[in-house]
Nucleic acid binder design. Structure first.
Lengths: 246, 246
DNA sequence: AGTGGTTTTCCATATTATGGAAAGGGATGC
DNA sequence: GCATCCCTTTCCATAATATGGAAAACCACT
């Protein structure tokens, strides 16, 4: 039903992404379990098309052709998310956002604003560091290399509530994994609180969705109940947009 | 030397991207020249992995899995661009940027700042609309659906110099195609001028590189000569990062 | 120079993808 | 409400295509 060689080529691309975009042939072999000869041949093909690039030290890296295709895809996904974000707005009364991780940044790719007078607005396209946002936390909670990300970006203080210690942050991420949602209590912007839930493709967290609003309004909601509702919506979206088969 | 089915799968992905991220099976067939049965089977595979999604009207669209992989690739490309951007800084004395189109936005993916005291700074990660920037113009000049983009985004006035009419903008894009570079004369920010050149994968424009600085300094340079120099650098980079084979 | 760990190439084999043609769906017009 | 047209999906016999083990080449250390 599926074309084997294409499936395997995608495995290789994903293995490369998992390793941060760069890996040697044997690392790919370890991760995918495919025989060397096969991987090498598949890599040649991806190389010819610019989907993979070979560094001077013979290691392989994700290539430029993916940027264009990925960019177009990102626009699509943002569009599909809107009905789901709308449900989140209905459920919470607050502005809903979707964001993905791009390199070490959180990028907002879609938004549906709250109907209220006082509301969060126009985040689409914004790039922020993950440590001070609720979506950032759900996105990193799933990644084994979260500590490495903090090593590169640091945890700059944005407000008096920002978590600036790596240990405390890792503990926070553990808590997020535990309860399945993340909060931002004025850590990015004073007076703004958010609750974020993960969007999964059934295997890994690929995006986050959140609602954000004035601290008092968010705090007035029942977190666990709200989180349950949002998770449901996010799961539906994940299944629709990313799921399919596997 | 290359795995046929993988090659074809990539053709399909690219055909989809060419059509703005969405197409019917027969449109893909028209574009790629592949037989229906083959395309369908390949699409099934991509569907199973979330690289393609099927809309309710049975059309196909680029899928969510590309977002993650594309995001990682984007980080890589930004890194490789730096030596080339450095050359641009040496040539022009001004800050150099690289940007790509993501959905309808221009996203800056890499920067090398000018050594001067007064300089442009820290644009990486910023997302702006294409109409008011030089890179945006070179990126759109290559796209047949530029008018559709403006339909969605509008051409909001950023300064008194911003081009806000679609006709004038399309004329500008034609001029850009003609001379091979684009200018921004304070259209995004007063007093800031830029000159941008396209980065091509040998077939299509995939990114833009630009230098930006204070109006007086940029205006003092010989545009055509500078553009020639920048093009050379951009071409080298395009060949290295996106080219390879085909 | 020697050694260990890679990456790359090769080639006979049968597994795997191929594509033409026919069946199935949906929409549009009469 | 029915027929028509166009687009999508399925099928299957064929051979072209991808496979993967093993050997060779390469590189980086020491």
């Amino acid at each position: 039903m599926s074309v084997q060689s294409v499936d395997r080529a995608l495995d290789i691309l994903e293995a490369l992404a998992d390793q941060g975009g760069e890996a040697g042939l044997s690392e790919i072999a370890a991760r995918t379990g495919l025989p060397y000869g096969t991987i090498h041949r598949l890599l040649q093909t991806l190389l010819n098309r610019g989907y993979v690039r070979q560094e001077s030290d013979r290691r392989y890296a994700l290539g430029g052709s993916l940027v264009r295709v990925g960019g177009v895809a990102e626009g699509m996904v943002g569009g599909w998310a809107e009905p789901y974000l709308t449900k989140m707005v209905e459920l919470s009364g607050e502005t809903a956002n979707m964001a993905v991780l791009e390199g070490d940044f959180v990028v907002y790719v879609a938004q549906v604003p709250s109907p209220r007078r006082l509301r969060m607005f126009a985040e689409v396209g914004r790039r922020v560091l993950p440590h001070s946002t609720a979506v950032g936390k759900v996105l990193l909670a799933d990644r084994a290399d979260a500590a490495a990300v903090f090593g590169r970006t640091g945890l700059p203080r944005r407000t008096e509530h920002t978590i600036t210690s790596v240990e405390r942050m890792l503990a926070e991420l553990a808590a997020v994994r535990e309860c399945g949602y993340a909060m931002d209590l004025g850590e990015e912007e004073l007076g703004v609180h958010c609750l974020a839930v993960p969007v999964s493709d059934g295997d890994r967290v690929v995006a986050g969705m959140s609602v954000s609003g004035p601290a008092e309004r968010i705090d007035a909601l029942d977190r666990d109940e709200l989180a349950r509702g949002l998770r449901k919506i996010a799961d539906d979206f994940g299944a629709e947009a990313f799921g399919s088969g596997r």
